[in-house]
Design a protein around this nucleic acid. Structure first.
Lengths: 205, 205
DNA sequence: CCTACCGATCGGTAGG
DNA sequence: CCTACCGATCGGTAGG
């Protein structure tokens, strides 16, 4: 039994280390930028020598790609989960905005990296992430277009409204902190209402 | 006469070079980030050797500070110019939004740098720029608070509305290009209307 | 997981 | 404005 548990234990420890390194990269890339962060900084953050990082991650670039792809995966999945089973355009838009804001409030490091480091990605990962961002924006645009087509929204340009809503939610990652004066519930609710007003929804809140 | 014109001519040439170097830094810092840009890149962009840059700028950091302070100066002055002589909260908000959007559409390099490179600033410049950004946000918040106090806006939280409006306008710098499908006039007008709807203004457009 | 080390590149200076 | 060069730091590898 202990012979079988040993490799599993070693693998689990390696997985933990891999996660710890990723966590440190998340904090440091967010604070100092990808090019402003050295593998030495990350190593010091987790108490390893720089060269040991390469036992867990292939390169600094791989860390960045893992972070940025996972961020877009989460946002895309979060959108689909939020709007499913919503039976009106207003309910869907409000739910999507609240999910968008909640993600950016609770993952501000991921979001900062995602929004700043696209040029730091090597190809083909850069094109992949740009494609995912485009797909995310298109989901919003289609949702708003539907509301306009149904006569529920007054928005003149679904594309500009989508850009505006996405960007204002992203901004939450720059100032929201759990220790702050405003609760996440309140911020999400308020942004949901601002979103409905921005598109001229006939159903507010 | 030529003896007097000579130093003036030399000074003017130096001023031109200084501007050319700043222009190259604007493009490169925006595209690759401050830490991702080397003095060699900037030098190659203007056809000089890296060491020659130091005849025109004290350091790479001085270039960054000049760009970021000038950006905030322009935004603060643009706000004051836009809202002066506006006789209603709605007119003021619309004018401020249009000025904000126009700046971000026409100065996308400056805006990208301004929004990404705050951690790259050395103290005390970082605190100075952060102070200017705070002052800019406070101007918006005060403007919205006034509209709420007058019963012209429905906004529940002037602070959140200000953050949301600032951020959605900043986003324009990430996609707007003069060669694109949408004219600047149309984009500015549309964002002005979205701003009025977002705060629940009783006077739209 | 470490020590030792690689070549490349960094921002900036000396000196002319 | 250039050549030549500084010490520091970079991401990553060899070898154990």
């Amino acid at each position: 039994m202990s012979q079988q548990a040993s490799p599993a234990g070693r693998e689990r420890r390696t997985g933990v280390r891999r996660g710890e390194i990723r966590e440190a990269a998340l904090t440091l890339f967010s604070d100092r930028g990808y090019h402003g962060t050295g593998m030495e900084h990350i190593a010091a953050h987790v108490g390893l020598s720089p060269s040991s990082l390469y036992n867990h991650w292939k390169s600094k670039q791989e860390l960045l790609q893992d972070i940025m792809v996972a961020t877009m995966d989460d946002l895309l999945a979060g959108f689909d989960a939020a709007v499913s089973e919503m039976d009106s355009s207003s309910a869907a838009l409000s739910a999507a905005m609240q999910a968008h804001v909640r993600y950016h409030a609770t993952h501000h490091r991921d979001a900062r990296i995602g929004n700043r480091e696209i040029p730091s990605l090597a190809t083909p990962a850069r094109d992949r992430v740009k494609g995912m961002r485009h797909a995310y924006a298109k989901k919003w645009e289609a949702m708003i277009s539907l509301g306009v087509a149904q006569g529920r929204f007054a928005a003149v340009s679904p594309q500009l409204a989508a850009y505006a809503l996405l960007e204002m939610g992203i901004g939450v990652s720059q100032w929201y902190r759990p220790s702050g004066r405003l609760s996440l519930d309140l911020v999400a609710k308020e942004y949901g209402e601002m979103a409905l007003r921005l598109v001229g929804s006939d159903e507010l809140g």
